[in-house]
Simulated scan of single mutants.
Amino acid sequence: MNPANRAKTLRIDRIACTGQGLCGELLPELIDLDEWGYPIVKDRSVPDHLRAHARRAAAACPLLALHLDADRT
């Protein structure tokens, strides 16, 4: 299977994240923010129609703490 067509999941590097909250603003469908601005992923699986938004949110993270990974299954 082509890696580009594999299901995608969100992953947050909790050590790198400083809680700036940009990911939650760019991808509110999948990411909530706690009271300090740290992300809480509602659903790690990224639906096809949100993949472009998820890629944009990961690229916009100032500390590159948000990752969009291909599923290993």
Rank of each mutant, 00 (worst) to 15 (best):
A70P: 00
W36A: 09
Q20V: 10
D32K: 10
A70Q: 08
A65D: 08
K8N: 04
H53W: 02
R11F: 15
P39G: 14
A60Y: 01
K42E: 11
T18K: 14
R44W: 04
L22W: 14
R14P: 00
C23D: 06
D32T: 13
V41K: 07
E35K: 09
P3C: 01
R6Q: 09
L33H: 08
L30A: 01
A7W: 05
G37Q: 09
A4S: 13
L27R: 03
H67G: 07
A60R: 07
R44G: 11
C61Y: 01
G21C: 08
R6D: 05
A7D: 15
T9H: 12
L30R: 01
R11N: 13
D13Y: 09
L33C: 05
P62N: 03
A59N: 07
R44V: 09
R56E: 11
A54I: 11
N5H: 12
C23E: 05
C61N: 04
V46Q: 01
H49W: 10
P3F: 02
A58G: 02
D71F: 01
E35M: 03
L50C: 02
R51Y: 01
G19A: 03
E25P: 00
V46M: 00
P3V: 04
P39I: 12
L26V: 06
I31H: 11
R14Y: 11
R51M: 10
R44M: 02
I15A: 04
A65H: 12
G19P: 05
A65C: 14
G19T: 03
V41W: 06
A16E: 08
G19W: 01
R11H: 15
A58P: 02
T73M: 12
L66I: 12
D43L: 04
P28L: 06
H53D: 15
E35H: 10
A57Y: 09
S45W: 08
H67S: 13
R51L: 15
D71S: 14
D69W: 03
L63M: 13
D32W: 13
P39W: 13
K42N: 13
D43V: 02
H49P: 06
E35N: 03
P62Q: 04
A57T: 06
C23G: 04
P62H: 00
K42P: 08
H53I: 07
K42S: 05
I15L: 09
R14D: 04
L68Q: 02
A52R: 11
A58W: 01
R11K: 15
T73H: 15
E25H: 14
D71W: 03
Y38D: 03
A70R: 02
R55S: 06
G37E: 07
L33W: 03
L22D: 05
R14M: 06
L10W: 10
C61H: 04
L64T: 10
L10E: 06
R11S: 14
L30T: 13
N5E: 15
R44S: 14
R11C: 07
A60C: 04
L66D: 07
V46C: 00
L33R: 07
Y38S: 08
E25W: 12
